[in-house]
């Protein structure tokens, strides 16, 4: 048994390749046979991944879903930010530089609009909930941008650790919901061309949600969504603890 455990530990990433391959295959079969193609196989696989991550969290009490199980550590490496960003960059090969440039200003507008939109919405809901101190409100508003902006803002403003944890949970929930809703709502909201994908990336901003949602909708749109979404977290970390906090203090 020890030999086997060491073996799996040494070859984690390769185990990850195999596990994800099997999961993708089963999802494809499920999509074709049971759902008759109503949802694409990739959307099912992403959804299945989220559900497995939930059980992984329950079993191990860890923070990284399925990959907290010792023999599935490689899934975490495979799905980590290095591989994610590397493959997103590779998708640019199929994108048109000209289209990106043409829709650039729309991307910029939706980026700024998206950050303000989520921040204001998050703060307003927390206010209605009864939270009144500016640092907590600001951290929660930042959390509704992404799960990185939340804790970065909270740490900068000295928010309490439970508020910071709350802001992370809000950001993760947002990413999950964007992942699930994008393939379902894409048609209805006109998300079917590169310019729309750039606006979408800027508006939603959550890197993992946008990239997973677009992958399940139409892989050709991924580079356009990613090129704007990549600025969102950074801009959020810049604006939330500074300008937005000042404005918030002034409003309160």
């Amino acid at each position: 048994m020890e030999i086997f455990e060491n073996f799996i530990d040494k070859n984690g990433l390769i185990v990850g390749f195999m596990v994800i391959g099997v999961l993708a295959f089963l999802s494809e079969v499920f999509s074709k046979k049971v759902l008759k193609g109503y949802l694409p196989g990739s959307a099912i696989a992403i959804l299945a991944g989220l559900i497995l991550a939930y059980f992984g969290g329950i079993i191990t009490n860890g923070e990284k879903g399925l990959s907290d199980l010792p023999f599935l550590k490689g899934v975490g490496t495979f799905g980590g930010s290095m591989f994610r960003d590397f493959t997103i960059v590779a998708t640019a090969m199929g994108a048109s530089y000209l289209t990106m440039k043409k829709a650039g200003w729309l991307g910029l507008v939706s980026l700024l609009f998206g950050i303000v939109f989520f921040f204001v919405f998050g703060v307003a809901l927390a206010w209605i909930w009864g939270i009144r101190d500016a640092a907590s409100l600001c951290t929660i508003g930042a959390g509704s941008c992404t799960y990185i902006v939340g804790p970065v803002t909270g740490a900068a403003l000295g928010a309490s650790s439970d508020v910071i944890a709350l802001s992370i949970a809000i950001g993760v929930l947002k990413a999950i919901l964007v992942t699930i809703l994008t393939p379902l709502l894409a048609k209805r909201v006109g998300l079917n061309n590169p310019a729309a994908a750039m606006a979408f990336g800027g508006l939603m901003g959550t890197n993992s949600g946008v990239s997973a949602g677009l992958a399940a909708t139409d892989p050709a749109l991924v580079p356009y969504g990613a090129v704007t979404a990549t600025f969102y977290t950074g801009l959020g970390c810049l604006l939330c603890p500074s300008l937005f906090y000042l404005i918030l203090g002034w409003v309160l």
Partner: peptide
């Protein structure tokens, strides 16, 4: 992306 979802 599937692996990423599974490690959220």
């Amino acid at each position: 992306i599937i692996a990423m979802s599974a490690s959220q």
